[in-house]
Write a protein that binds this DNA or RNA. Sequence first.
DNA 1: AATCGGAGCAACCGCTCGAGT
DNA 2: GACTCGAGCGGTTGCTCCGAT
Length: 311
Amino acid sequence: MGRSPCCCHDAGVKKGPWTEEEDKALVEHIQKRGGNVGSWRGLPKAAGLNRCGKSCRLRWTNYLRSDIKRGNFSEEEERLIITLHASLGNKWSTIATHLEGRTDNEIKNYWNTHIRKKLLRMGVDPVTHQQLPPDQTNHDVNGAAAALLPEALLWAAAAVSLGGLDTGALMQAQVLQQLLQAIGSNNSTTGLIANLAAANTLLNSSSSIVPNQMNYLQTGYLCNTSNFAEQHVVQQQLTNDTSPGTSTFAAAERADQLCNTAASYNVAPAGDWPPAQEFGGLLEPMMELPGLCSLEGDSFWKDILEDSYCL
DNA sequence: AATCGGAGCAACCGCTCGAGT
DNA sequence: GACTCGAGCGGTTGCTCCGAT
């Protein structure tokens, strides 16, 4: 013989928002038992509540428990959720076990109302964490993002330059050129994506010789990596490879800021971008970096940058 | 001041899985 | 082994709040 049916379908069982009295009765009952709930099914009767056991469990686990953290999600928590979601999918309860004081329901709501939209704005599929195809990407024109990207690239280039040009310089230049062509291109979005894809291919084929700083272009720039969740890992790698106070770090950090800001905007098709700032004007603040010689003195870099910029 | 629409969130619904009979 | 139920989980709904018009 099986068990008796659940109370959830009983007529007269109260539904809807909980009152203060009900909350109090539930908390007092559970505290009286030393936090040991026992059977949720039998709880409502024992606690004097006209509620379904299921409803009581939900109210307790999602709202009344003392260890629940309140308030906004921190950046760190948001990052963790994205990373975990990339590997676990919609396993909200499993994700919740990695965030102290957060419930699965809260994380699920936060994902659906904040993170999901944010990823879509950035052209990232929130389900697969892959870059969305061009025709599904949000193409709202946003001049601010366009204005930031060239400068971000130059700062990133400065970081690369300061990190050393001994090996893979040619490869770096090619990648950079692809990226700058992507930005400067007056073609359709398809052209932009094609250029970025070419840059990606170069990066992927040259991981052994291109310095970590070069990954930077890939990680922050337009969120063009195949997996969004991996980006912060590489960014941290970059941060670990440099120290605060060094010129490389300063350049990389500036590029980071700009890329992050740009990535938070909707990226417009290249044809809609406003005229770019003068190359010289962008280059000027980088000349202040101690130890930077390549961008200024090395015509190799300067030529590439200028040529690409004029495309 | 009133109305409308969107965002955020608490709560419900329905399904799955494991355990009891 | 078959059946039934409880607990837990993810998806969805509907209420409330708030800003825009």
